[in-house]
């Protein structure tokens, strides 16, 4: 009896420790980034062009670049991903074809990001002739983000009770009317959450943009989708390994800006999720 109690206490202790260890890296990263990064933050840092071989000035073009790429990714991946998920979940029968598509999506999610980068280089930059450009980079990031969006959307659609569909059909609604009238409105919070999380990951990726869009140093803003842009993740890589004598302050502040952007997106996603979970009553 006493033995089993002690055993249980040890087991719980180990589990609690494991949980604590999970939080530790997050806290440590946040602490270090804030500690070293905040002093370098200023309006000028956020809105000025880099100067002096990126050793001074701001990171404005990299911020704009990352925003543009995130929006570009959203434009390509959200409609495609959501439509595909609706088709798979609401229309497609269970046959070898849908099975094949499902397996493809799972495998797509498992491909290392550098492979996406090379794929984008081959297909969009070279073969389709987009060059290293916002277009090529967004498309590459979009393909990488698709599995996340499709999976999240399918989960959100599946969580809408089957009853609602049956009622809608029984009132004479078509499949599309049912999807639009009942299924989508109830799935949208889940879809939004998953989509934002997918995009926030894309915003922080380096490898897929390495060959497809990211500019080493380009102190001006893009004028068309065929322009290259600087982007925060790649800029961090450049600052920390490719340019000698960059002050720690600038490096950490750049990291802080990227982490902050991703963090804000994640918080928005979490907020949407919690807000709608409260309203959900079935």
């Amino acid at each position: 009896m006493r033995d089993s109690r002690r055993y249980e206490r040890v087991a719980f202790g180990v589990m609690a420790a494991a949980t604590g260890i999970i939080i530790a890296p997050v806290l440590i990263i946040l602490f270090i980034v804030l500690w070293y990064g905040v002093p370098g933050l200023s309006l000028e840092f956020l809105t000025a062009m880099p100067r002096d071989g990126m050793r001074a000035g701001g990171i404005f073009p990299a911020i704009v670049g990352t925003l543009v790429l995130t929006i570009g990714t959203a434009i390509f991946s959200i409609p495609l991903g959501i439509l595909a998920a609706i088709y798979l979940n609401e229309y497609a029968g269970k046959n070898w074809m849908t099975r094949l598509v499902e397996i493809s999506i799972i495998n797509l999610a498992g491909i290392p990001s550098i492979v996406y980068g090379l794929f984008g280089l081959g297909l969009f930059v070279t073969f389709l002739g987009f060059g290293a450009s916002i277009l090529a980079g967004s498309l590459t990031l979009a393909i990488m983000t698709l599995p996340v969006i499709i999976t999240a959307t399918r989960e959100a659609l599946s969580s809408v009770p089957q009853q609602f569909r049956e009622v809608s059909f029984s009132l004479g609604a078509s499949r599309w009317q049912t999807v639009r009238g009942v299924v989508l409105p109830n799935a949208i919070p889940g879809i939004l959450t998953g989509t934002i999380l997918g995009l926030s990951r894309a915003a922080g990726e380096t490898a897929p943009i390495l060959f497809t869009v990211a500019a080493f140093y380009l102190p001006r803003l893009p004028e068309s989708v065929f322009d290259q842009v600087m982007a925060l993740p790649y800029h961090i890589y450049v600052l920390s390994t490719q340019v000698p004598n960059v002050s720690m302050k600038i490096q950490y502040s750049t990291v802080l800006v990227l982490v902050g952007m991703v963090f804000i997106m994640n918080i928005i996603a979490a907020y949407i999720r919690s807000k709608f979970r409260k309203r959900k009553t079935w």
Binding site: F164, E166, V167, S170, L171, G172, A173, Q177, G181, N186
Partner: peptide, 23 residues
């Protein structure tokens, strides 16, 4: 058809009733 469990849509009373006519 009326189902086993009451299953109004998570909409207003009004929108529930007009779901069919609207469709």
């Amino acid at each position: 058809m009326v189902f086993q469990r009451p299953n109004p849509f998570p909409l207003s009373i009004y929108d529930n009733v007009i779901y069919g006519p609207r469709v």
